[in-house]
């Protein structure tokens, strides 16, 4: 299970045009932390093609190295071996081309909603006039529906609103690729569902290349074109890709009764559960103590013979 299989030809696959060029490809990427005995291999042999204009979801259990994967893609971490290529260039550091939305929002608490978004806009579009930049900021605040809260600071916002700000901040940078690192995991179920639909709406308008990392299979199916499971770590690798053949625009309520949706959900969930079971079995097997060689000894009675006692 160490070599990831991508797009394994499947019998049911519908004929479709040749896949567009990959925008980002990861080739045999490995990443671990620490050294010596405490060395912990997080990801091993990751191969992944992110195609132009596609919405790709990576689904995995918590602790399987999802965040490390996003950090690698964002350029915040550098792979130990293998390479990540974007537009024929090896990724060596973070870039404004790859916008990232963090799980914990990471908004700057001393800036208002507008200030947080303006910080990235002012930086990315330095050459624009002041007015252009302000209009750009306003446009994205409106896009995420926060026009009434422009002057508030993050601590005065709910979790959902914070994540909207974070999303607007990243979208406003107009990145080529949008990396969403479990953007909705910290939200309650209702807010989560609302934001899923909003992300879906925004994405269907912009059709930006997007990579979503999530632990929610339903969310992945709702949003993505392809789903790649991440096998649990240590030494996490990618599983086979599942294509999501659902018509867009998608409607969350209608999908609940859709047979394709149900089948896909079962397939992905079953795969993940099976892989985790296997990983646990392997771990149990590996951690079993090596057979101890017993000395050749015969049990012998050390009891004092009765007669001599006392």
């Amino acid at each position: 299970m160490s070599v990831a299989v991508l797009d394994r030809p499947r019998s049911k696959a519908i004929a479709r045009p040749a896949p567009p060029d990959p925008l980002i490809s990861m080739r045999a990427v490995c990443k671990g932390y620490g050294s010596g005995v405490t060395r912990n291999e997080v990801l091993s042999n990751i191969n992944l093609n992110l195609r132009k204009g596609e919405f790709l979801a990576i689904v995995g259990f918590s602790g399987s190295g999802k965040t490390t994967l996003t950090k690698l893609l964002a350029g915040l971490e550098i792979p130990d071996s293998g390479e990540i290529v974007m537009d024929n260039e090896i990724i060596k550091g973070p870039s404004q081309e790859r916008g990232i939305v963090f799980q914990n929002y990471s908004l700057l608490p001393w800036l208002t909603v507008r200030g947080n978004i303006a910080l990235s806009v002012d930086r990315v579009f330095k050459h624009w006039s002041r007015g252009e930049r302000r209009d750009h900021v306003e446009k994205f605040i409106e896009m995420v529906g926060l026009s009434h809260a422009v002057h508030r600071r993050p601590h005065e916002l709910s979790g959902g609103m914070r994540q909207r700000v974070s999303l607007a901040r990243t979208l406003a940078m107009k990145p080529n690729v949008l990396l969403l690192d479990e953007p909705l995991s910290a939200l309650d179920a209702l807010t989560r569902s609302v934001l899923q639909e909003e992300i879906l709406k925004i994405w269907e308008e912009e059709r930006q290349t997007c990579l979503l990392i999530t632990n929610d299979v339903d969310e992945a199916i709702l949003l993505a074109d392809r789903i790649v499971p991440l096998n649990p770590g240590p030494n996490a690798s990618l599983g086979p890709a599942f294509s999501v053949e659902l018509e867009r625009p998608r409607d969350k309520t209608a999908l609940n009764h859709n047979e394709t949706f149900k089948g896909l959900r079962n397939a992905v969930t079953n795969y993940l559960v099976a892989v985790r079971q296997k990983s646990r079995d392997d771990e149990a097997l590996a951690s079993e103590a090596p057979p101890i060689e017993l000395p050749e000894l015969q049990p012998r009675s050390l009891r004092v013979p009765r007669g001599r006692a006392g």
């Binding site: 915040l76 700057l108 940078m173």
Partner: peptide, 17 residues
């Protein structure tokens, strides 16, 4: 917070910024 620094790195802020 490391997250703030990550934001700074993604935005490629200069040292003084």
């Amino acid at each position: 917070d490391k997250d703030y620094m990550n934001v700074a790195r993604v935005l490629k802020l200069s040292w003084s910024q």
